[in-house]
Design a protein around this nucleic acid. Structure first.
Lengths: 348, 348
DNA sequence: TATCGGATAGAAAGCGCTTGCTGTGACGCT
DNA sequence: AGCGTCACAGCAAGCGCTTTCTATCCGATA
């Protein structure tokens, strides 16, 4: 039925071992023999049996990429960059590895299960993207899993995620706190004193860090924060829309709204517009991430650019062992403030 | 070093066979024994060796999802929906399958290589999303590969892709032609007579079908198309921007621009704005797909909604054998015209 | 009480590949 | 001429699991 190594060997009049070596190309094989084998492979249309090979060699060519939400370009862009470096066919790397993207949907359980699945497959490497959940038991469970993976020889890289100590994982972290701070300082510099903040899900590290940056900026400028000014939500447009209406209801005198990310900011813009407010004349809006669509918003969005592609590429290279990990296994990647049309001085 | 089935068996004082049966749960095992085994599994922190299991059972729990561009929400949304149905952890399905999304970047070679990789892994199913490339040799190669996969027992589903005859693949196709036609008829109905068209990459089926629909509408209404009115490009914003400037250069009297998809339309809007033209007062714009951000454009985008989530979910279910394939193995999914603010009557 | 059949558990044969070790000529050196 | 050295090629032992076939134990049946 299916063609096996042995069939190829028989056809090429060599031993299975030789065929294997030709295919893996890590052992001297005479040119003439190699050619004969290759011809047989071709003629028989032979396809290597991945599981068998993985079993025998105790390694596989699978690389896992965990993302929170594959429909969100934030993750899509990183995943794309990682995958390009991992290899996959046509990527920059030589070997053909199967880079697989796993969608956790932000659920801790699914994250854990995917890690187990990847462990089960004896993945060569795993890259986890996006913020982590701050639930202690879960964090411990993930850390334990990561350590186990690392012990088993799987390279583990965190991309845009806080370091997980004691796990042997390399971490490329985004400076969310610094970015948040810079963004809010920009608004304060424009003269804003009453700023609403639309945060992401409460339990995520990214949410907390960005918010901390925001608050640090307020504090540094002697602005007493009003608890009414913060609303938690999800990282999507609708959440931004609803949260903005809520903010407006709580305090109509706000002159600026800082959003947890660009999608949320877009929702905020829509809500403001629907409320008859002009941007930035009545209310300034700021986002985070600088996703491609942000520049197309009207007015274009002031935001903090995160080098998603670059970070992903680097994570991918490290995962493949093609780049030295940063000293200490941790690198912090800074964002860049992008001042655009959605922010301006407050009215009056 | 690593814990194996045998270790668990030893600890539970049973044979490896019994442990395997407990884990796979398809053979009668006494409750007390089962419990003992499960406890041993837990205590030893045993993780099944995927490759070994796949080898012995001659099947794997991998499901491949091929997408053109993972950074594009069009694919992200479909992939997400597919994955949810495939199972993956926490999905609707019971079994834990590893749904992996593979990013072809629109490259035929990578598409082919990924298919081989999946074949190598003995994937349980494969879902191909997005339009195909019209290059004959490549199409034949893909068809051959799909047939081989199907023969090997892998379920193959095409989602948003034209049928591939003789391959045993189930196809859920988007009615791009019909959608394109409807969209253009809407504009014609508003009074437009000079319509520019920004197409996608020339060699893609999706590009051709949408354009054919557009032209069919023109013809049906006795509008003689001017070759200058069509510009080919890529499916991204920048391409839309550039193409629009080109269209404006070629014929400044255009009163409407139809874009190959929403991203392109957004670029078109930006270009028009930058050229001092108002939307829709001076020029109407229309997109395709109705991605989430389309409603946030200013003005919001008239477009054709494609039920990406629904289609993806259905493809996923079919791939898992949980839904009957459509009669004949082919289903056409229609889009729905969404009339919004970016289209209006021509000036004058 | 002798016999059966159902319910479990085990033994063992692979699944298809990799790889350490063992030949085996051919070559170059002294 | 004799012998160490290479460059290759093959043997065979697994890798860790599944699954067929067989053995065993028991209560049930006649």
């Amino acid at each position: 039925m299916t063609v096996t190594l042995a069939d190829v060997a028989a056809r090429a009049q060599v031993s299975p071992a030789t065929v294997s070596r030709v295919l893996n190309g890590n052992y001297p094989v005479a040119a003439s023999t190699r050619e004969r084998v290759l011809r047989a492979v071709d003629e028989l249309d032979y396809v290597l049996n991945g599981p068998a090979s993985a079993l025998a060699a105790a390694t596989s060519d699978l690389v896992g990429i965990l993302v929170n939400d594959i429909a969100d370009p934030f993750f899509g862009i990183m995943a794309s960059a990682i995958q390009l470096e991992i290899g996959g066919p046509g990527g920059r790397a030589g070997g053909e590895r199967l880079a697989v993207v796993c969608n956790t949907g932000g659920s801790p359980e699914r994250e854990l299960t995917y890690l187990t699945l990847l462990q089960r497959q004896r993945a060569a490497a795993v890259v986890l993207t996006g913020g982590a959940v701050e639930d202690a038991p879960h964090a411990a469970a993930v850390a334990a899993k990561l350590r186990k993976l690392a012990d088993a020889g799987t390279r583990v890289v965190l991309c845009g995620r806080p370091p997980a100590s004691d796990t042997g994982a390399i971490a490329l972290t985004f400076d969310n706190r610094g970015g948040g701070r810079e963004l809010t300082e920009h608004l304060i510099g424009l003269g804003h004193r009453r700023l609403g903040y639309i945060a992401g899900p409460q339990e995520r590290t990214t949410t907390r860090h960005r918010l901390e940056g925001h608050r640090a900026a307020l504090e540094a400028h002697g602005i007493q924060e009003d608890p009414r000014w913060t609303v938690y939500g999800r990282y999507d447009r609708q959440s931004g829309y609803e949260a903005t209406l809520e903010l407006l209801r709580r305090d109509p005198s706000l002159t600026a709204v800082v959003a947890a990310n660009d999608s949320v900011a877009l929702g905020a813009c829509a809500a403001l517009r629907d409320s008859g407010l002009r941007i930035p004349d009545d209310v300034s809006v700021a986002g985070f991430d600088d996703l491609p669509f942000s520049i197309d918003a009207v007015p274009s969005l002031t935001t903090v650019r995160l080098p998603l592609s670059e970070a992903g590429a680097r994570a991918g290279r490290i995962a493949m062992g093609r780049e030295e990990p940063p000293p200490g296994g941790i690198a912090t990647i800074r964002g860049e403030l992008m001042v655009r049309g959605s922010s301006g001085g407050p009215r009056g």
